[in-house]
């Protein structure tokens, strides 16, 4: 079947805020999960304080809010596998990838081998990725 008129755009979700203080991180994630059904080219960026969204061991019981961080590990099942983290943002905050959740996806073209969804990129590499996007959503 000819699906040549199917538009595929590059969508980027830019996350620059910590979770819980405001609802943006959670509602951004909700958009991303819906977007996954549209067969578009989806990337997520975590830069500045956005890197805190992916911290391991989040525990929200004492603030009375739902801990939505486990949802990030499901992104691979939604075929969202381009997750860019700006290295400089981690460095500035005294963090490394070890502090963040390890996000993976199963590659259907490679016998479902488990691969890393997280791409640690430098500032310049990230600038390049941003520049290629058709639609950038920031919340």
């Amino acid at each position: 079947m000819d699906d040549g008129d199917q538009i595929v755009k590059k969508f980027m979700y830019m996350n620059r805020k910590t979770p819980y203080g405001t609802i943006y991180a959670l509602e951004s994630l909700e958009v991303v999960l819906i977007a996954a059904a549209f067969d578009q080219d989806v990337s997520l960026v975590f830069a500045d304080d956005g890197v805190y969204q992916l911290m391991k061991d989040q525990s929200t019981e004492e603030i009375g809010m739902k801990n939505f961080s486990p949802t990030y590990s499901a992104l691979g099942d939604y075929d969202i596998k381009k997750i860019y983290i700006e290295k400089e943002s981690l460095d500035e905050r005294g963090l490394s990838l070890d502090d963040l959740q390890d996000l993976k996806y199963e590659d259907e073209d490679d016998d479902w081998a488990e691969k890393d969804s997280i791409h640690l990129v430098s500032r310049d590499e990230l600038a390049e990725v941003i520049d290629q996007q058709d639609v950038v959503f920031s919340f």
Binding site: F11, Q40, V135
Partner: peptide
């Protein structure tokens, strides 16, 4: 309506402009 309407706007519109 649902969030799908936002994604559809992103697909159909020539430019998406965000105010927040």
């Amino acid at each position: 309506s649902g969030l799908g309407q936002l994604i559809e706007a992103g697909i159909q519109a020539d430019r998406m402009v965000v105010f927040g």
